[in-house]
Design a protein around this nucleic acid. Structure first.
Length: 276
DNA sequence: AGGCCTGTTTTGCT
DNA sequence: CAGCAAAACAGGCC
């Protein structure tokens, strides 16, 4: 389901609902969702307070009292829901946190791709692959132009898989990558070393703005995404290319084209986004 | 019915 | 090491 704006939307919802809640019990109807020691995952959180829910890239970090952290990645369709105690788990509920009030926190995942792991707070950066070499967050302060120019020059990869690679920049997925490439008029199969400094500058601005704008709209809902309140995002109405193959480009009216780039469906405007 | 598609990441092979 | 294909899985669509 989620790219950075969706994960951030989930984070804010969880913060509103379960920050300060105390975990009473952990059940694992689908143990494969947990990659760390199962016994510890069920025992350690018990009695601890959820002190904060943070986010890094597309990862959620539940900060528990006593220096324990649960790292959670939603992958394609992971979802959290908070329900009254005694609620029946869903068909795809994989983890159940019973809270020391009248509620439960469910982790549901139809696709069963999402993963959770328990680490000592501070160890996540060395222990969790993916977090280890995550690129900078796409914000004005953290994603510098110099850094962008450097990584673009160094690589000869196609821009599309390059932007999807979380070790370059954290948080972009298939939707927002297609959007920012269209905005910047870059063909998705352009190799990064051939993109001009000016284009890199524009792309950086577009990435930062797009992620911020999508977050403000509570993310994009195309398949199954909803926040913890069960609400869908609104940003799908703002998309220019994703999901619009065959429809006219909003700049030049040319029908948008859909191709595969590095195994990922990729929509772009064949006229505005010329390969150079 | 069978094949293909889907917002992701890791693994294993060149 | 870098880069790519396949795999992990379920469900919707044609």
């Amino acid at each position: 389901m989620p790219e950075l704006p969706e994960v951030e939307t989930v984070r804010r919802g969880l913060t509103a609902l379960v920050k300060e809640a105390i975990i009473e019990k952990v059940d694992l109807p689908y143990p494969k969702a947990v990659t760390s020691d199962l016994k510890a995952f069920q025992q350690e959180p018990v009695g601890r307070t959820i002190e904060a829910i943070e986010r890094r890239g597309k990862y959620l970090l539940f900060r528990l009292s006593g220096n324990e952290t649960i790292v959670s990645h939603l992958r394609m369709e992971g979802q959290y829901s908070v329900e009254p105690k005694g609620s029946t788990p869903h068909k795809h509920t994989e983890v159940i946190f019973t809270l020391k009030d009248d509620r439960v926190l469910f982790y549901n995942d139809t696709r069963r791709f999402g993963r959770m792991t328990l680490v000592k707070t501070g160890d996540e950066m060395t222990q969790v692959s993916g977090l280890k070499d995550l690129g900078p967050e796409p914000t004005e302060e953290t994603l510098s132009l110099d850094y962008m120019k450097e990584i673009f020059k160094k690589s000869k990869r196609l821009i599309k898989p390059f932007l999807l690679d979380q070790s370059n920049i954290a948080g972009l997925g298939n939707i927002y990558t297609d959007e920012v490439l269209w905005q910047t008029r870059i063909h998705p199969e352009t190799t990064t070393d051939k993109i001009s400094s000016q284009k890199i500058r524009e792309l950086r601005e577009n990435i930062i703005n797009e992620i911020a704008r999508a977050t403000k709209h509570h993310g994009t809902t195309v398949h199954s995404f909803s926040n913890v309140f069960g609400e869908v995002g609104k940003f799908q109405n703002e998309l220019d290319v994703y999901g619009r193959a065959g429809l006219p480009c909003r700049r030049c009216e040319t029908p948008l084209k859909k191709i595969k780039v590095a195994q990922r469906g990729t929509t772009f405007c064949p006229k505005c986004q010329k390969k150079k």
